[in-house]
């Protein structure tokens, strides 16, 4: 099986949500999907989207599935509220723009909130989408074999004809990236833009990224960013590898400026605590950050760094290698 993967460079993500809207306007803006964000960007540290997804269970314990719970629409995802556009925008007065329904949560609820105290506050953005895992818990949890992983690119899809809305997959996905559509009575998820991929066009979220933060290639394509960043440089890591699903979306972890000591002098420690990044990306994050820093230093001394060149992405088109090897079957 070939596996298409994505690397997201968290040092370049500016939280603009262009990816979120590129995805939403393409796939989830109608028919019960309004609340779903197949791709979203959450601010970390935080409870994320759906709320507290990291505490909702799922994933693997060795070869057994761990139990998980189903997120609630209003409390954990957030209702797709309407706004008072009419009165706020087209009538005189000082009516602020507000949602008409009382909202409890949303896909970007904690924007820029972060953690830490002045002058050492910190946050960073974490874009999230289906990881198209190598060992998908969702697929294993479905009693109807409605979920399958494509041989040609490893994209994980839910067969909408077979799905009967039992939601074992929603509970099993530790990233909570499968959404139940209560209007359709079926579960739905990121399709890795397979209709685009089949035409050689990158996923909407990746292609629209204004920060050039997303690379797409097949894992076995040695010239591709995935192989280079994940296997050669080892600077791109899966989110929560301990969940056991072997994700295929990888993250270049965020570096941060030094924290200030009480006397106002910079300490040698990064503003984002290493421990927090280890929680998210596992123990390999230390080596990844060290490599990144070393290559940044090299570049700033005017030396060459193929790693930095790749991450800078001078040419947008170089970030995506979707064409199949010659003779490969589409």
């Amino acid at each position: 099986m070939r596996q298409l993967g994505m690397v997201i460079d968290l040092n370049k993500c500016i939280g603009c949500q262009t990816c979120t809207l590129a995805c939403k306007s393409q796939w989830t803006d109608h028919d019960g999907r309004e609340f779903m964000y197949w791709n979203h960007v959450e601010t970390r540290p935080g409870k994320g989207y759906p709320r507290d997804w990291e505490a909702a269970g799922g994933g693997w314990d060795g070869d057994s599935l761990k139990p998980g719970r189903l997120p609630r629409l209003a409390e954990d995802y957030g209702i797709p509220a309407d706004f008072n556009f009419e009165s706020a925008l087209f009538h005189e007065g000082k009516q602020p723009l507000r949602p008409l329904d009382a909202m409890q949560w949303g896909p970007n609820w904690e924007e820029d909130q972060g953690a830490g105290e002045f002058p050492n506050g910190y946050f960073f953005y974490l874009p999230r989408l289906c990881n198209h895992c190598t060992k998908p818990a969702c697929l294993a949890a479905c009693p109807r074999q409605a979920i399958y992983k494509r041989e040609e690119d490893g994209i994980v899809l839910i067969d909408q004809e077979r799905c009967r809305g039992y939601r074992y997959c929603v509970a099993a996905c530790p990233y909570k990236k499968i959404y139940f559509n209560p209007q359709a009575g079926r579960s739905e998820k990121c399709i890795f833009c397979y209709p685009r991929v089949e035409q050689g066009i990158p996923q909407a979220c990746a292609y629209q990224c204004v920060g050039r933060a997303r690379h797409v290639s097949y894992l076995d394509d040695e010239a591709g960013a995935l192989h280079q960043l994940v296997s050669v440089w080892k600077v791109a890591l899966p989110l929560h590898p301990e969940y056991g699903t072997q994700p295929n979306v990888y993250y270049v972890p965020p570096l941060s400026p030094p924290a200030f000591e009480a006397d106002g002098k910079p300490s040698g420690k990064p503003r984002i605590p290493d421990d927090y990044l280890r929680q998210l990306f596992g123990p390999d994050v230390d080596a990844a950050l060290a490599t990144l820093q070393q290559e940044i230093d090299r570049k700033s001394r005017g030396e060459s760094s193929p790693l930095m060149d790749m991450l800078i992405a001078y040419r947008h088109g170089d970030m995506f290698r979707l064409s199949r090897p010659e003779g490969g079957q589409p």
């Binding site: 609340f35 629409l73 929603v170 209560p182 209007q183």
Partner: peptide
């Protein structure tokens, strides 16, 4: 009863 506004 089936509820079009509940996911859980």
């Amino acid at each position: 009863v089936a509820d079009a506004r509940a996911t859980h």
